[in-house]
């Protein structure tokens, strides 16, 4: 058994993108990301020109994982939210269903209380999307099929 595969499809993408964009506008945040706890960016909202989102996602997931480790050591179940306050930009990282995480890059002068509040609300909306999706897969035929490549195509990709 390997990890469960997670697929992102057009419908969920659109819904999540809309939710993230709304939060980003309301908070005037620079960048909002939904990432997997294994460190992959899933949906990005905002201008990512100056920020390496792949690296950001990997480090944010590791940061959250390390913080969970710290929580265990001091006898907490989790510290579900992380805030890093900078001089110009701040970073907010929070857990979402243990499988995902929300990451926000926002202006350091913004209220982190408001960020926390909006994030909680947004997390609930995204959870709904994910639950709908799970229901949809359980009920219907596979939503869309994985690429069924041949051995020859695989060898071509990995060609020696």
């Amino acid at each position: 058994m390997s990890s469960p595969t997670f697929g992102l499809h057009e419908l969920e993408f659109q819904r999540i993108q809309a939710i993230l964009s709304k939060m980003r506008r309301e908070l005037r945040a620079e960048l909002v990301l939904l990432i997997s706890r294994s460190g992959q960016p899933i949906v990005i909202s905002g201008s990512s020109e100056n920020i390496d989102c792949t690296a950001l996602s990997s480090l944010a997931a590791a940061n959250l994982a390390a913080t969970d480790g710290l929580a265990n050591i001091v006898g907490e179940r989790e510290f579900s939210v992380l805030v890093h306050q900078g001089r110009q930009r701040s970073l907010f990282i929070s857990d979402l269903m243990k499988r995902f995480s929300l990451v926000l890059v926002f202006d350091a002068t913004a209220s982190s209380g408001l960020v926390r509040y909006k994030c909680k609300h947004t997390s609930l909306l995204i959870e709904d999307v994910i639950r709908d999706y799970q229901r949809r897969i359980e009920k219907t035929e596979p939503v869309s099929s994985l690429p069924q490549f041949s051995d020859a195509e695989l060898e071509e990709l990995l060609g020696s």
């Binding site: 469960p4 992102l8 499809h9 057009e10 899933i42």
Partner: peptide, 8 residues
């Protein structure tokens, strides 16, 4: 977790 992005 393998993540398949059907959109991108």
């Amino acid at each position: 977790m393998t993540f398949i992005n059907y959109v991108a």
